[in-house]
Write a protein that binds this DNA or RNA. Structure first.
Length: 281
DNA sequence: CTTTGCACCTGTTGGC
DNA sequence: TGCCAACAGGTGCAAA
């Protein structure tokens, strides 16, 4: 299994939440958009052509997050962005343009934010005012892992009759949002459940442990990322030190921190997966 | 309906 | 030392 030592920089939900807080702080309650400049017509998907016209001269009324989507709100509608793998929002100076800057957000106060995404797995989209619930990228999303709907009972009922591996299941955004490849392995380790277990065979107690583990691992990562909010100006979405806390991710062959057994590496759903053969049943 | 597999994209890495 | 195939990730879609 190939290693990747820089996974802590891939924006999963905790990193997106850290970026949201950074944007919220920098935009404040008085920011007004002067203009949106698109440097290309698409990133991964086409960017709606009307987006610059809709957002010109709009005041920013809030910055929210749904799943891994950032939502910059204005009276006219919402600027939706997804960081993909390498996306960042950063405050930039004029003259510091980068070939990977796909969108510039110019404010009336002279500041400029750039959406920079070398790998172009990111998304920029437009949501007309009042159209959030019906928007194609949001309408089928499952509950937030830090919200009240993510419960043992919900996971128990949602998983009955499903044969797919539990790791693939919890990465399904229709079931539960915000659990990416890294935190899926981490949460299953904490819950002491093997990633390949069929979802429908989880016991009620295991569902309870997994719900708690997902909530805890994401909360702790957000707390760790929070310490880098002050660096947002320089670092954009590159946040947090939580990668130092990974218990199994990218540690195939190393001893388990809990029992010393050799950690296993494999693939599920085409994604790298790590677990302890002794701790996880 | 569920499940599986792959395309998308490009900077980084590891093997030769 | 230098080259190049393999790989990482989230999402969406086609096919089974």
């Amino acid at each position: 299994m190939t290693k990747c030592k820089r996974m802590g920089e891939v924006p999963e939900l905790p990193e997106v939440e850290t970026v949201r807080r950074g944007l919220e702080r920098l935009l404040g309650s008085t920011a007004v958009i002067r203009a949106i400049r698109l440097q290309r017509p698409d990133i991964r998907f086409p960017i709606p052509k009307e987006l610059p016209r809709k957002l010109a001269r709009q005041p920013v009324t809030g910055v929210r997050r749904r799943a891994k989507y950032l939502l910059i709100e204005t009276p006219a509608g919402i600027l939706l962005s997804h960081l993909g793998m390498t996306g960042t929002w950063r405050l930039v100076e004029r003259g510091a343009e980068d070939k990977h800057d796909h969108c510039y957000l110019d404010l009336e106060d002279g500041r400029r934010f750039a959406f920079r995404d070398p790998r172009r797995f990111g998304i920029i989209d437009w949501i007309e005012a009042g159209g959030e619930a019906a928007h194609r990228r949001l309408k089928d999303l499952g509950p937030e892992p830090l919200g009240e709907a993510w419960t043992e009972d919900y996971l128990w009922r949602a998983s009955r009759g499903r044969k797919v591996a539990v790791k693939v299941f919890v990465m399904n955004q229709k079931i539960i949002v915000g659990v990416g490849n890294i935190y899926a392995s981490e949460a299953l380790f904490r819950a002491r459940i093997r990633p390949g277990r069929p979802s429908g065979r989880l016991t009620r107690a295991e569902c309870g442990r997994l719900v708690l583990a997902v909530r805890e691992v994401l909360s702790e990562a957000i707390a760790a990322g929070g310490s880098t909010i002050s660096d947002f100006r320089h670092a954009g979405g590159s946040s947090g030190y939580f990668q130092n806390s990974f218990r199994v991710y990218d540690r195939g062959g190393e001893p388990c921190t809990a029992c010393g057994a050799q950690l296993r590496a494999g693939a599920l759903g085409g994604r790298s997966t790590f677990w302890c053969p002794r701790c996880q049943a």
